[in-house]
Simulated scan of single mutants.
Amino acid sequence: ENRQYLINRSSSFFKNLFTKYFIRLDSESYVYMLAENDIINIHLSRLGIAFKYSSQHNTITSREYSDMHVDDNQCFGTLTGLRSGLLLSPMAAIEHKNRHQLCRKLIVPYGEIRISKKPDRYHQTVTINRTSESKSPFLHKYFVFNLNDRLRILQPTDSPTGWLYLALLHAVTSHCLPDQYTGMTGMERSFELLNSAGSWSDQPFDPVCRQILLQIAIISPQVNYYPENNQSMEKIEWNPDYLPYSLQHFGYYLIAKKLLEASEEWNFMYSTSATPNNDELEQLFKSKKYNEKLLMKLYWDYRDSYNPLARLSPQMEAEIQRTSIASSYKPIWENSWGC
């Protein structure tokens, strides 16, 4: 009869494994380990996934992906600064077999994105807050992204939720320089995902998608006129403790709202329970925190400073040109006469 023994969380063995790998997925209270002979079964109870540590081979294999193990090197050249997520590599990679056919996987838990920036560091740090069950009842969810080494991109496995979440992660981990793995900035890859068909839906978004859209929308700075009934002064409230100002793209709010509107065009075909009303996302779009017409104007003013991949779709840009009544900024020398 094989007996299993619960490993003490205060032991050095538990703490070493947890702090090196599994803290990237969930809190310590949701991780437990059971010893059985020379095998350690590692369970993440809230996420519902498990791993197996072999002391003989010194490897941690996945229960859900039995042919994959936890990679010792958790750096993969993109999503820089993200402190959550566990990288899995195929077991065949250890023996260097069929390397051209291998596909690594990244497991990322769902939660509220937190961004911090220290003065002595060149890149922001991104963590996923998973402590508030009442605020987010979907903390049992996680996403799996495939690393396509031929295309040099991360690929979501479910649509549209995975596409939106990956776009959010790329947006908040972006930098002015391109990522080593993708060859593009996080902002470029984020808009590439948001503009692609995988992010759009012809049925109402579920609550998880709506929470992700909310986090995408608030990346844009809050803009309004001052005073509000006059257009003589533009007020932009950049978030100094968030992303660098150059990465707080004006288009995130606009495309998030457009995605929501497109998903609600066929609302009459679905039950009212499938279309949440007056949630945080709905309140944001109804509030006066963002002057949408001014946001369109500012997007157009800054448009040429964005790389072509980090722009709204041609259809959205054409719509902005039709609906925006405010005149865009023009340098003074364009109106001056030469001598």
Results as ranks from 00 to 15, higher is better:
D67L: 15
T185R: 06
V223A: 03
N8Q: 09
T323L: 15
S174K: 03
L164F: 07
K118Y: 08
A318Q: 13
L193V: 12
G186V: 02
V108M: 00
T161Y: 00
S66A: 13
H123I: 15
E133A: 04
E64W: 03
P109D: 02
Y242E: 05
T61F: 03
A197R: 02
F145M: 04
S287F: 03
S313F: 09
Y242Q: 01
K297S: 04
Y226L: 12
G198R: 01
F22M: 02
R104G: 10
L295F: 07
H69I: 15
L284C: 08
P276F: 03
P90W: 14
G251Q: 08
G183D: 11
E334I: 00
D241A: 10
H170T: 03
F76N: 12
R150Q: 15
N16M: 09
I113K: 07
K235S: 04
Y299N: 00
N58S: 14
V172M: 02
S273H: 04
P90N: 05
A310M: 11
Q4T: 14
L312G: 06
N73S: 11
D202L: 14
L79D: 10
M233H: 12
L254E: 02
T161D: 06
T131A: 10
W163C: 07
V172S: 03
R9H: 14
S196Y: 12
K235M: 13
Q101R: 09
A326I: 11
L169K: 05
L247V: 07
S84K: 05
S132R: 15
N230H: 06
A197D: 11
A326M: 07
L312A: 11
D241W: 01
S336M: 12
K257V: 09
C75N: 15
Y110W: 10
E36A: 15
D206R: 14
A310Q: 06
R121W: 00
I332V: 12
W266V: 06
T275H: 10
R121L: 12
T185S: 07
C176S: 15
K288V: 01
S273C: 08
L281A: 08
T125L: 12
L6R: 09
R114M: 14
V208S: 03
Q180R: 15
S136R: 15
P160H: 01
S27I: 06
E334C: 09
G85W: 03
K258F: 09
Y30Q: 13
L102F: 04
L47A: 08
